[in-house]
Every structure is written in C-alpha cells, then in structure tokens.
Design a protein around this nucleic acid. Structure first.
Lengths: 223, 223
DNA sequence: TTAAAATGTTAGATACCTCTAACATTTTTT
DNA sequence: AAAAAATGTTAGAGGTATCTAACATTTTAA
C-alpha cells in the first residue's frame, strides 16, 4: 500500500492502540524513535488518507481501513517470524529484526507459500496470534505472569516483546513458550518474583519482565 | 551499505559494465527507468563515495569497491532466487521480482542459513553463477543458442534474462535449464531458428530469444 | 489556582531522489 | 565540415521524511 515508512507508522499505531485505545503523538514518537514534529506531520498525512482519525491536541485513533492495513502487515511479520524459526532454524531472539524487513515484501505468492508450508499456523514463535488472511485475530485472554499468585503454577503462552535483548534474557533464564513454571515468591517491594522453571531451577524475574510474559493458569499445577 | 536506491544503481551499473566495460548515463537511465539528470546526479554521489569512477561526458566505470558491493547484492539476489525455487517451490518465472526485494534484506544470519540449506550452491535457477562470499564468480564461457550451427546439438546452461515475460515464453516452448536441444534450421532472413526440443517437438525461436539462451555444445549429439 | 511540566503544533531547514526546461558536448549523417 | 541527432549537464523545483527552534495547549503539582 503506502511507503515503507507509512507501513511502520500504521503497525506501531495499531499495536499501541491495542494497549490504550487512543494513541498519543509522544508515545508514537518514542516507539518509532523520531521527534514529535515528525510524527505530527506524518499523522496529518495518514489522516488525509483516512488511515487514522486525528483531532489536534487530542489523540490518534485507527480507522477500519487502518486496522485492515495494520493486520495485513502484522500477519506478514508473524508468518515471517515463524518461517524463520520453523523452516530455517533461526533462533527466536533473532527473527524479529529479519521479519521487520520481510514484512514489507510485496508478493502474495511468497506469503501464501509460507502460510502453506507452515500449515496455516495460528501463533508466531513468541506466542502472538497470526491474523488470518481476512484480518481476523483469535481473541486471547491476557494474563501476565506478574498476576499469578504465590504458589500457583502457569504455562507460558506468549511474550509481549520480541526484541533480541528481551529474548536473550529469557533464554538465559531458561524460559520458553509452553513451559510450565511455579511462582515461589512475590516481592511487595519492587514487584519482582521468584519462580521455579521447568528445569526445577529457582530464578528471579523483575516486575518489568514478569509483566511481559503472558501465561494461562495451569489447572494441574506442578513441582 | 547505502540506500535501497543506491544498491539498485550499483547492481545495474555492474551488470551493464559486464556487457560493455564502460557504462553510459543513458544506458543506465534506460535500465533503471529514470531520466538522464536523475542518473547524472546519482552518479556524482556514487563517484564521491568511490563506488564508480566518472569523467563527465565520458563514461562510468565500476571501482573495486563498487564491484565488491555489486557482487554482494547479486549473491543475495541469486541465493534468494534459488531458495524460492528449491525450498519454497515457487516457479522460476516468478522468483525474480521477489528476489529483487529480498536482496535488500540486511542479515548475515538469513543469508548464511539460505546458503547452508542449499548446500553452498554455485548457480541460480536461471543458470547464472552465484558469487561466493568473497565475491568470486565462476568464469563461464558464454555461447548463445544463436551461435550453434544447423544440425548441431547443445545443452541449455543459463538464460540471459529473468523477467517473467521471457521465462513464461520459454515455459510455453517447453524449454528448461539442462535440456539438450538440436538446431534444425537457421533463417538468414531474420535470425530466427527452428529447434527440436527435449520432448521431440519442433518449435521456432526468434533471434532475440535465441541470443538470450546460453548453451554448451553437446559433444554426443542427440535425436 | 497559579506555576511548572508535559505534551503538541507550526515554521523553516536539510537530505534524498526524482522531475522538466534549458543549455553543452559529442557523435553521426549529409 | 556543417548540420542534425544523440547524449550529457546544469539549474531549479517538488515530494517524502526527517530535524531544530519557537510557540501553544493541556495536565500535573505546588
């Protein structure tokens, strides 16, 4: 559709809007690592194209059209990530940066084949749902590891950040999607938690990390 | 290295230089489908970066540095094409346009894995040699089908054009890399030739087509 | 509720890549 | 060798995406 830059704006606006509904100019500037006036002028352009609705000094809202475009890019990004991991054997901490580039490839053939080779998959290597070709996303209840009570177990279903530094951190703690872990202790003081990993090791996670790990409560428990 | 635009200039300059040694501003403008002044100013920029040597009103020459960059892009393009055909099962007439996009992906991991999965391949799906990681290209004798004498046989080793329209044409004639064919008749008049295909069908090829099919003489002969 | 801080906007500049119009040089043809 | 054609260059402008500096509005804190 639009330029590479536009695609990056749309994707960021959409993902911020999932967290907060309305998106601020400053939030977007922070996410895209550009200055406020840069965002301001791009938003005007996107508003002219009806991709966002914008009221000066208020906020940015994604339109239906914008949502469609965002989901198409996110679909390509997540299919690419899964392909890189499953077919090419690249580590999950490396695939985000490559997928950032592949998501801009324009070729139905390319993405249809990827989808077919992966068996029309539903989630990417970080546990995030892959929108289907019509832009439908499987709804997910988002319970973070930080919300699990002391003594309870949970299974990791996704991670809320796919930057290399974050995933390297999880790798070093021995955490993977699908692992069942138990919360041993929760610190009031700083929100950090101590968990028992699948490998029966105790390890500490900061508040910031625990809140970026999505889980589902484990009915059976373990450990 | 440089921008996407720069990469496209470098690649085009290099491939034109293989045909003619020196490259003209107008030839480059034709190839890139931009106007003369556009090329003129970009060439000045590339000359400032020592990627080409340029003497106004004379010609454009690729420097060693330029050659290195060009070969690195060409390597990525041809690895991508082969990957798309061999691993993803996409038709050879479709892969060029996708590879044009993939060649700009910046990731050693990505291309090292592709190279590894393909077993460090030497030629792409169109029979063109893949430069190795140091920029070394296997030398190839280039004999075109148009140069084969009446009655002689030859084996197709490569095609000198990877546009979809050209490859669709070859597909419709039932021609593939590796096929051994026989030249039945050569027309003085327009340079067209009649050949016998591997499937023992007679078919006519125009001068323009015959000269874009690279062959090696078949010592054994056939049919 | 006023002052301070945070957030947002406008104006004007720059780099990149492209164009058209006008002019210059080189090559080809007569 | 002069004229015509082809090729190349310069000047000036426009769109995109970015920036800094100055100003405006909204939110938060004193």
């Amino acid at each position: 559709m639009g330029s590479l830059t536009e695609e990056n704006y749309i994707k960021s606006i959409y993902s911020l809007s999932l967290e907060a509904g309305e998106v601020s100019v400053s939030g977007l500037a922070r996410k895209l690592k550009v200055k406020l006036p840069t965002v301001n002028s791009m938003i005007k352009k996107l508003a002219a194209k009806k991709i966002v609705a914008y009221v000066p000094y208020k906020g940015i809202k994604v339109t239906e059209k914008g949502k469609r475009e965002a989901l198409s890019i996110i679909r390509k990004h997540r299919l690419a990530e899964l392909f890189l991991v499953e077919v090419m054997g690249i580590g999950w901490e490396e695939v985000h940066d490559i997928a950032e580039q592949l998501e801009h490839v324009e070729s139905d053939t390319f993405y249809n084949r990827i989808n077919q080779m992966l068996g029309n998959p539903k989630v990417d290597p970080h546990g995030e749902p892959i929108p289907d070709i019509h832009g439908k996303v499987a709804a997910r209840k988002r319970l973070s590891l930080g919300e699990i009570a002391e003594g309870d177990s949970a299974r990791i279903t996704a991670v809320g950040n796919d930057e290399k530094s974050f995933l390297d951190h999880l790798n070093s703690k021995g955490l993977q999607i699908g692992d069942t872990i138990t919360v041993r202790k929760k610190e009031e003081f700083d929100g950090s938690i101590v968990i028992v990993t699948r490998a029966r090791k105790e390890t500490m996670l900061s508040h910031q990390v625990a809140n970026r790990i999505w889980v589902e409560a484990d009915p059976a428990g373990h450990g």
